[in-house]
């Protein structure tokens, strides 16, 4: 196997007596979708926080694109090609959809210590931003304040913002959260179309989506990765059934 795009090596994070991340070693290869599943409280969010740089691990290392990024601040990781979407929708409500994406483009267009030129007519930002909106199918909503978009549209906007920097890896924290069936299906189709071009680490509760999309699945329980493999392997895994899938009868 070639060197993975992202890999963690025995990552540990403790909160007091609670082992939120217990020696987790996972990797994501270029172009693949690796899904991370686990019941509530399994430590998915803590793990994502360490990958993005919002949470400092107690020990272990994170490597991305051939570089140790364990201690790198968030914005430096982003510039290496690691983008994320948020579990709780985090679009910037006071700006329009287009402005949200234009800001994401701006983040990758050199420094922003530019005080005088009006950004609203800046096609070098708005052009690519419009393109990203088209890609996620939001171009008709470009001029609307992000706060006025529907929940599903805001999730799409999240993805458009993450894509604006042309990342090699997308960290998708529950992209389908709160979506209706139809919207979920559209998002699944969209992510499938992205597959191959960008690697994704998908954190998702929707088992349908996970088994449709993922090349590999890792199951996290109490901070530990109890199993990792192809969807078929995970489905057949006894420990996973016991710990997780069987509980809520969600075996697909």
């Amino acid at each position: 196997m070639t060197v993975p795009l992202l890999s963690t090596d025995r990552l540990v994070k403790r909160y007091g007596g609670l082992l939120a991340t217990d020696n987790v070693s996972i990797d994501v290869a270029s172009g693949e979708i690796h899904a991370l599943i686990g019941p509530n409280g399994a430590g998915k969010t803590t793990l994502v926080g360490q990958l993005t740089g919002n949470v400092a691990p107690d020990s272990g290392t994170i490597r991305f694109a051939g570089q140790d990024i364990t201690r790198l601040p968030t914005h430096r990781r982003v510039h290496l090609g690691l983008a994320r979407s948020f579990q709780i929708t985090s679009v910037l409500g006071e700006f329009t959809a287009l402005e949200n994406v234009a800001l994401a483009v701006q983040a990758h267009a050199g420094h922003s210590f530019r005080f005088l030129r009006d950004v609203r007519g800046d096609e070098s930002l708005r052009g690519p931003a419009r393109h990203c909106l088209e890609e996620v199918g939001l171009d008709a909503r470009a001029g609307m304040p992000a706060s006025a978009l529907s929940h599903g549209e805001q999730r799409q906007l999240e993805i458009a913002m993450a894509l604006a920097g042309d990342p090699s890896l997308l960290l998708l924290d529950e992209p389908m959260a709160g979506m209706g069936v139809e919207e979920s299906q559209r998002m699944i189709a969209f992510l499938r179309a992205l597959k191959g071009r960008r690697a994704m680490l998908l954190i998702e509760h929707d088992m349908d989506a996970v088994f449709q999309l993922a090349d590999r699945i890792t199951v996290l329980v109490y901070g530990r990765a109890i199993a990792s493999g192809t969807p078929a392997e995970i489905r057949a895994d006894e420990a996973v059934r016991r710990a997780y899938l069987g509980d809520d009868g969600m075996v697909a």
């Binding site: 993005t52 919002n54 601040p73 968030t74 914005h75 982003v78 510039h79 983008a83 994320r84 948020f86 985090s90 679009v91 910037l92 409500g93 006071e94 700006f95 402005e99 800001l103 994401a104 701006q106 983040a107 990758h108 922003s112 210590f113 530019r114 005080f115 005088l116 030129r117 009006d118 950004v119 609203r120 800046d122 913002m161 604006a164 920097g165």
Partner: peptide, 24 residues
């Protein structure tokens, strides 16, 4: 309404988001 101003205003509504976009 400059690039700088948009960064500052964006950070007001959500600074984690702005960091995740790649802004220091």
């Amino acid at each position: 309404n400059s690039r700088f101003g948009y960064v500052i205003r964006g950070a007001k509504s959500n600074d984690l988001r702005m960091m995740a976009l790649g802004f220091p």
